[in-house]
Design a protein around this nucleic acid. Structure first.
Lengths: 157, 157
DNA sequence: TTAATCTGCTTGCGCAGGCAATTATTCCGC
DNA sequence: GCGGAATAATTGCCTGCGCAAGCAGATTAA
Protein backbone atom coordinates (compact mmCIF):
# COMPACT_ATOMS: atom_id res chain seq x y z
CA UNK A 1 0.00 0.00 0.00
CA UNK A 2 1.34 3.39 -0.97
CA UNK A 3 0.29 5.19 2.18
CA UNK A 4 2.39 3.53 4.80
CA UNK A 5 4.90 5.65 6.65
CA UNK A 6 8.32 6.13 5.17
CA UNK A 7 10.94 4.00 6.86
CA UNK A 8 14.04 5.62 8.24
CA UNK A 9 16.20 5.04 5.21
CA UNK A 10 13.58 6.34 2.81
CA UNK A 11 13.06 9.35 4.95
CA UNK A 12 16.77 10.13 5.08
CA UNK A 13 17.10 9.74 1.32
CA UNK A 14 14.13 11.93 0.50
CA UNK A 15 14.44 14.61 3.14
CA UNK A 16 18.14 14.90 2.47
CA UNK A 17 17.40 15.39 -1.19
CA UNK A 18 15.10 18.29 -0.41
CA UNK A 19 17.15 20.05 2.21
CA UNK A 20 20.49 19.56 0.48
CA UNK A 21 19.15 20.93 -2.76
CA UNK A 22 17.60 23.84 -1.01
CA UNK A 23 20.71 24.75 0.89
CA UNK A 24 23.18 24.40 -1.96
CA UNK A 25 20.87 26.28 -4.28
CA UNK A 26 20.68 29.17 -1.86
CA UNK A 27 24.40 29.29 -1.33
CA UNK A 28 25.11 29.33 -5.02
CA UNK A 29 22.53 32.04 -5.60
CA UNK A 30 24.11 34.03 -2.81
CA UNK A 31 27.50 33.63 -4.47
CA UNK A 32 26.10 34.88 -7.77
CA UNK A 33 24.20 37.76 -6.19
CA UNK A 34 27.12 40.22 -6.05
CA UNK A 35 27.35 39.89 -9.83
CA UNK A 36 23.71 40.81 -10.10
CA UNK A 37 22.47 37.56 -11.63
CA UNK A 38 20.12 34.93 -10.31
CA UNK A 39 20.57 31.23 -10.98
CA UNK A 40 17.84 31.45 -13.59
CA UNK A 41 19.59 34.28 -15.38
CA UNK A 42 22.96 32.63 -15.08
CA UNK A 43 21.76 29.40 -16.54
CA UNK A 44 20.19 31.16 -19.51
CA UNK A 45 23.49 32.85 -20.16
CA UNK A 46 25.26 29.53 -19.79
CA UNK A 47 22.98 28.00 -22.41
CA UNK A 48 23.69 30.90 -24.72
CA UNK A 49 27.38 30.49 -24.07
CA UNK A 50 27.19 26.89 -25.28
CA UNK A 51 25.09 27.89 -28.28
CA UNK A 52 27.75 30.36 -29.42
CA UNK A 53 27.31 32.12 -32.76
CA UNK A 54 24.16 30.25 -33.62
CA UNK A 55 22.28 31.75 -30.71
CA UNK A 56 19.08 30.16 -29.47
CA UNK A 57 15.40 30.74 -29.88
CA UNK A 58 13.42 32.34 -27.08
CA UNK A 59 11.08 29.39 -27.01
CA UNK A 60 13.86 26.85 -26.79
CA UNK A 61 15.51 28.70 -23.95
CA UNK A 62 12.22 28.87 -22.09
CA UNK A 63 11.68 25.13 -22.53
CA UNK A 64 15.17 24.22 -21.42
CA UNK A 65 14.76 26.44 -18.39
CA UNK A 66 11.35 24.91 -17.69
CA UNK A 67 9.83 28.36 -17.62
CA UNK A 68 6.61 29.70 -19.03
CA UNK A 69 7.07 31.74 -22.19
CA UNK A 70 5.68 34.80 -20.44
CA UNK A 71 8.09 34.50 -17.57
CA UNK A 72 10.93 33.98 -19.97
CA UNK A 73 10.08 37.06 -22.00
CA UNK A 74 10.60 39.14 -18.89
CA UNK A 75 13.78 37.38 -17.91
CA UNK A 76 15.10 38.12 -21.41
CA UNK A 77 13.94 41.73 -21.01
CA UNK A 78 16.03 42.10 -17.90
CA UNK A 79 19.14 40.65 -19.49
CA UNK A 80 18.66 42.72 -22.61
CA UNK A 81 18.13 45.93 -20.67
CA UNK A 82 21.46 45.29 -19.00
CA UNK A 83 23.10 44.75 -22.36
CA UNK A 84 24.00 41.14 -21.65
CA UNK A 85 22.02 39.57 -24.46
CA UNK A 86 20.58 40.65 -27.76
CA UNK A 87 17.39 39.59 -29.53
CA UNK A 88 17.46 39.38 -33.33
CA UNK A 89 14.38 38.66 -35.35
CA UNK A 90 14.79 35.24 -36.91
CA UNK A 91 15.48 35.31 -40.64
CA UNK A 92 13.48 32.22 -41.49
CA UNK A 93 10.58 32.65 -39.05
CA UNK A 94 9.35 36.15 -38.62
CA UNK A 95 7.47 35.31 -35.44
CA UNK A 96 10.53 34.35 -33.50
CA UNK A 97 13.78 35.72 -32.20
CA UNK A 98 17.26 34.38 -31.90
CA UNK A 99 19.03 35.36 -28.76
CA UNK A 100 22.78 35.96 -28.43
CA UNK A 101 25.20 36.85 -25.71
CA UNK A 102 26.81 40.23 -26.19
CA UNK A 103 30.48 40.87 -25.44
CA UNK A 104 29.46 42.14 -22.01
CA UNK A 105 27.32 39.07 -21.58
CA UNK A 106 30.23 36.78 -22.32
CA UNK A 107 32.44 38.67 -19.90
CA UNK A 108 29.88 38.43 -17.13
CA UNK A 109 29.25 34.78 -17.91
CA UNK A 110 32.92 34.03 -17.40
CA UNK A 111 32.94 35.73 -14.03
CA UNK A 112 29.75 34.06 -12.94
CA UNK A 113 31.02 30.72 -14.13
CA UNK A 114 34.15 31.05 -12.06
CA UNK A 115 32.27 32.06 -9.01
CA UNK A 116 29.69 29.35 -9.42
CA UNK A 117 32.32 26.70 -9.83
CA UNK A 118 34.31 27.72 -6.82
CA UNK A 119 31.16 27.35 -4.77
CA UNK A 120 30.28 24.10 -6.44
CA UNK A 121 33.69 22.62 -5.64
CA UNK A 122 33.47 23.73 -2.07
CA UNK A 123 29.88 22.65 -1.48
CA UNK A 124 29.66 19.59 -3.65
CA UNK A 125 32.59 18.09 -5.48
CA UNK A 126 35.21 18.44 -2.78
CA UNK A 127 33.05 16.39 -0.47
CA UNK A 128 32.34 13.51 -2.83
CA UNK A 129 34.55 10.98 -4.49
CA UNK A 130 34.06 9.36 -7.89
CA UNK A 131 32.05 6.49 -6.46
CA UNK A 132 29.57 8.91 -5.05
CA UNK A 133 29.35 10.76 -8.31
CA UNK A 134 28.81 7.52 -10.18
CA UNK A 135 26.04 6.55 -7.76
CA UNK A 136 24.38 9.88 -8.27
CA UNK A 137 24.60 9.68 -12.02
CA UNK A 138 23.04 6.24 -11.93
CA UNK A 139 20.30 7.36 -9.61
CA UNK A 140 19.39 10.37 -11.75
CA UNK A 141 19.26 8.10 -14.76
CA UNK A 142 16.86 5.76 -13.00
CA UNK A 143 14.68 8.61 -11.91
CA UNK A 144 14.56 10.14 -15.37
CA UNK A 145 11.06 10.19 -16.79
CA UNK A 146 10.12 7.29 -19.00
CA UNK A 147 8.17 7.56 -22.21
CA UNK A 148 5.20 6.28 -20.25
CA UNK A 149 5.36 9.28 -17.97
CA UNK A 150 5.44 11.62 -20.90
CA UNK A 151 2.56 9.85 -22.60
CA UNK A 152 0.46 10.02 -19.46
CA UNK A 153 1.05 13.74 -19.24
CA UNK A 154 -0.27 14.19 -22.73
CA UNK A 155 -3.17 11.76 -22.50
CA UNK A 156 -4.15 11.60 -18.85
CA UNK A 157 -6.27 8.53 -18.25
CA UNK B 1 42.38 25.32 -9.94
CA UNK B 2 38.71 25.70 -9.24
CA UNK B 3 37.73 27.06 -12.61
CA UNK B 4 38.45 24.18 -14.90
CA UNK B 5 35.54 22.68 -16.78
CA UNK B 6 33.44 20.03 -15.12
CA UNK B 7 34.26 16.57 -16.37
CA UNK B 8 31.51 14.38 -17.71
CA UNK B 9 30.84 12.57 -14.47
CA UNK B 10 30.72 15.72 -12.40
CA UNK B 11 28.42 17.28 -14.91
CA UNK B 12 26.05 14.32 -14.85
CA UNK B 13 26.00 14.27 -11.07
CA UNK B 14 25.35 17.98 -10.68
CA UNK B 15 23.04 18.61 -13.60
CA UNK B 16 21.04 15.51 -12.74
CA UNK B 17 20.64 16.78 -9.22
CA UNK B 18 19.18 20.05 -10.47
CA UNK B 19 16.88 18.71 -13.13
CA UNK B 20 15.69 15.74 -11.12
CA UNK B 21 14.85 17.88 -8.15
CA UNK B 22 13.08 20.38 -10.31
CA UNK B 23 11.00 17.79 -12.08
CA UNK B 24 10.00 15.76 -9.05
CA UNK B 25 9.20 18.90 -7.09
CA UNK B 26 6.91 20.09 -9.84
CA UNK B 27 5.16 16.77 -10.14
CA UNK B 28 4.52 16.54 -6.45
CA UNK B 29 3.26 20.09 -6.33
CA UNK B 30 0.97 19.26 -9.23
CA UNK B 31 -0.32 16.27 -7.31
CA UNK B 32 -1.06 18.43 -4.29
CA UNK B 33 -2.63 21.22 -6.32
CA UNK B 34 -6.13 19.69 -6.54
CA UNK B 35 -6.22 19.77 -2.74
CA UNK B 36 -5.40 23.45 -2.84
CA UNK B 37 -2.06 23.27 -1.02
CA UNK B 38 1.44 24.05 -2.18
CA UNK B 39 4.48 22.07 -1.04
CA UNK B 40 5.33 24.90 1.35
CA UNK B 41 1.88 24.80 2.90
CA UNK B 42 1.83 21.05 3.02
CA UNK B 43 5.14 20.83 4.78
CA UNK B 44 4.07 23.32 7.41
CA UNK B 45 1.00 21.23 8.06
CA UNK B 46 3.18 18.14 8.23
CA UNK B 47 5.38 19.79 10.86
CA UNK B 48 2.30 20.72 12.84
CA UNK B 49 1.02 17.18 12.50
CA UNK B 50 4.21 15.90 14.11
CA UNK B 51 4.05 18.55 16.81
CA UNK B 52 0.58 17.41 17.86
CA UNK B 53 -1.08 18.99 20.88
CA UNK B 54 1.95 21.06 21.77
CA UNK B 55 1.70 23.07 18.59
CA UNK B 56 4.66 25.06 17.34
CA UNK B 57 5.78 28.63 17.43
CA UNK B 58 5.52 30.76 14.32
CA UNK B 59 9.21 31.53 14.45
CA UNK B 60 10.20 27.90 14.72
CA UNK B 61 8.02 26.93 11.79
CA UNK B 62 9.51 29.71 9.71
CA UNK B 63 13.03 28.57 10.53
CA UNK B 64 12.35 24.94 9.80
CA UNK B 65 10.80 25.92 6.50
CA UNK B 66 13.76 28.20 5.73
CA UNK B 67 11.39 31.06 5.14
CA UNK B 68 11.55 34.69 6.16
CA UNK B 69 9.30 35.56 9.06
CA UNK B 70 7.35 37.96 6.88
CA UNK B 71 6.75 35.35 4.25
CA UNK B 72 5.73 32.88 6.88
CA UNK B 73 3.21 35.25 8.44
CA UNK B 74 1.38 35.34 5.15
CA UNK B 75 1.56 31.60 4.64
CA UNK B 76 0.03 31.18 8.09
CA UNK B 77 -2.61 33.77 7.18
CA UNK B 78 -3.65 31.71 4.21
CA UNK B 79 -3.90 28.49 6.16
CA UNK B 80 -5.75 30.21 8.97
CA UNK B 81 -8.22 31.88 6.64
CA UNK B 82 -9.02 28.45 5.29
CA UNK B 83 -9.57 27.12 8.79
CA UNK B 84 -6.71 24.63 8.57
CA UNK B 85 -4.63 26.02 11.41
CA UNK B 86 -5.20 28.17 14.45
CA UNK B 87 -2.95 30.75 16.11
CA UNK B 88 -3.12 31.06 19.89
CA UNK B 89 -1.25 33.75 21.76
CA UNK B 90 1.48 32.09 23.75
CA UNK B 91 0.79 31.98 27.50
CA UNK B 92 4.36 32.53 28.60
CA UNK B 93 5.46 35.01 25.94
CA UNK B 94 2.90 37.55 24.93
CA UNK B 95 4.76 38.46 21.75
CA UNK B 96 4.47 35.03 20.23
CA UNK B 97 1.92 32.57 18.96
CA UNK B 98 1.56 28.86 19.09
CA UNK B 99 0.13 27.33 15.98
CA UNK B 100 -2.07 24.22 15.83
CA UNK B 101 -3.75 22.13 13.20
CA UNK B 102 -7.51 22.25 13.36
CA UNK B 103 -9.69 19.18 12.79
CA UNK B 104 -10.08 20.26 9.18
CA UNK B 105 -6.36 20.75 8.98
CA UNK B 106 -5.70 17.23 10.18
CA UNK B 107 -8.20 15.84 7.70
CA UNK B 108 -6.61 17.69 4.82
CA UNK B 109 -3.15 16.71 5.97
CA UNK B 110 -4.11 13.05 5.80
CA UNK B 111 -5.39 13.42 2.27
CA UNK B 112 -2.36 15.40 1.18
CA UNK B 113 -0.05 12.92 2.84
CA UNK B 114 -1.61 10.03 0.94
CA UNK B 115 -1.43 11.84 -2.31
CA UNK B 116 2.11 12.96 -1.75
CA UNK B 117 3.27 9.49 -0.88
CA UNK B 118 1.68 7.86 -3.85
CA UNK B 119 3.58 10.26 -6.04
CA UNK B 120 6.74 9.79 -4.07
CA UNK B 121 6.57 6.01 -4.50
CA UNK B 122 5.95 6.32 -8.18
CA UNK B 123 8.56 8.96 -8.88
CA UNK B 124 11.24 8.04 -6.40
CA UNK B 125 11.10 4.97 -4.21
CA UNK B 126 9.79 2.50 -6.76
CA UNK B 127 12.75 3.25 -8.96
CA UNK B 128 15.47 2.88 -6.36
CA UNK B 129 16.60 -0.05 -4.29
CA UNK B 130 18.02 0.04 -0.78
CA UNK B 131 21.59 0.38 -2.02
CA UNK B 132 20.65 3.52 -3.84
CA UNK B 133 18.89 4.89 -0.81
CA UNK B 134 21.90 4.14 1.34
CA UNK B 135 24.17 5.90 -1.12
CA UNK B 136 21.93 8.91 -1.10
CA UNK B 137 21.77 9.04 2.66
CA UNK B 138 25.54 8.89 2.86
CA UNK B 139 25.94 11.57 0.23
CA UNK B 140 23.54 13.95 1.97
CA UNK B 141 25.41 13.39 5.20
CA UNK B 142 28.70 14.29 3.55
CA UNK B 143 27.23 17.37 2.00
CA UNK B 144 25.69 18.55 5.26
CA UNK B 145 27.12 21.84 6.42
CA UNK B 146 29.97 21.63 8.87
CA UNK B 147 30.38 23.90 11.86
CA UNK B 148 33.00 25.73 9.84
CA UNK B 149 30.42 26.64 7.25
CA UNK B 150 28.10 27.97 9.87
CA UNK B 151 30.86 29.94 11.54
CA UNK B 152 31.89 31.49 8.25
CA UNK B 153 28.33 32.60 7.66
CA UNK B 154 28.30 34.40 10.97
CA UNK B 155 31.81 35.82 10.78
CA UNK B 156 32.60 36.19 7.12
CA UNK B 157 36.30 36.67 6.68
C1' DT C 1 11.38 51.82 38.31
C1' DT C 2 12.63 53.28 34.14
C1' DA C 3 15.14 53.56 29.97
C1' DA C 4 17.46 51.04 26.37
C1' DT C 5 17.63 47.04 23.82
C1' DC C 6 16.07 42.82 21.90
C1' DT C 7 12.66 39.58 20.02
C1' DG C 8 8.39 37.77 17.66
C1' DC C 9 5.37 38.95 14.55
C1' DT C 10 3.08 41.91 11.05
C1' DT C 11 2.90 45.26 7.21
C1' DG C 12 4.32 47.95 2.97
C1' DC C 13 6.70 47.53 -0.97
C1' DG C 14 8.96 45.41 -4.79
C1' DC C 15 10.23 41.59 -7.89
C1' DA C 16 10.01 37.12 -10.27
C1' DG C 17 7.25 34.10 -12.52
C1' DG C 18 2.63 31.61 -13.80
C1' DC C 19 -1.66 31.81 -16.51
C1' DA C 20 -4.76 33.61 -19.90
C1' DA C 21 -5.70 36.80 -23.47
C1' DT C 22 -3.69 39.21 -27.49
C1' DT C 23 -0.94 40.10 -31.66
C1' DA C 24 1.90 38.81 -35.43
C1' DT C 25 3.43 35.33 -38.40
C1' DT C 26 3.51 30.77 -40.48
C1' DC C 27 1.51 26.44 -41.96
C1' DC C 28 -2.08 23.51 -43.88
C1' DG C 29 -6.06 22.04 -46.72
C1' DC C 30 -8.33 23.11 -50.51
C1' DG D 1 -4.02 32.03 -53.61
C1' DC D 2 -7.16 32.06 -49.29
C1' DG D 3 -9.19 31.13 -44.76
C1' DG D 4 -8.59 28.80 -40.58
C1' DA D 5 -5.66 26.49 -37.22
C1' DA D 6 -1.19 26.44 -35.01
C1' DT D 7 2.87 28.80 -33.05
C1' DA D 8 6.25 32.68 -31.17
C1' DA D 9 6.35 36.14 -28.38
C1' DT D 10 4.37 39.81 -25.48
C1' DT D 11 1.26 41.87 -22.05
C1' DG D 12 -2.02 42.31 -17.99
C1' DC D 13 -3.13 40.53 -13.91
C1' DC D 14 -2.26 37.90 -9.74
C1' DT D 15 0.26 35.28 -6.19
C1' DG D 16 4.09 34.09 -3.20
C1' DC D 17 7.93 35.55 -1.01
C1' DG D 18 12.04 38.49 0.56
C1' DC D 19 13.55 42.73 2.73
C1' DA D 20 13.22 46.49 5.72
C1' DA D 21 10.44 49.25 8.75
C1' DG D 22 7.19 49.23 12.49
C1' DC D 23 4.93 47.71 16.76
C1' DA D 24 4.14 45.23 20.93
C1' DG D 25 5.82 42.70 24.60
C1' DA D 26 10.05 40.95 27.07
C1' DT D 27 14.57 41.49 29.08
C1' DT D 28 18.54 43.85 30.91
C1' DA D 29 21.19 47.74 33.09
C1' DA D 30 21.20 51.61 35.85
Amino acid sequence: MATERLDELEDAAWRGFLVTHDRIWREIEAGLAPLGVSMAEYSVMALLGEAGRKGMRMSELAQRRLMSSGGFTRLADRLERRGLIERRRSADDGRGFEVYLTKEGRALLRKAWRRQHEDLRRLFFDRLDDDHLRSLAEIWARLAPTDDDKASLEHPS
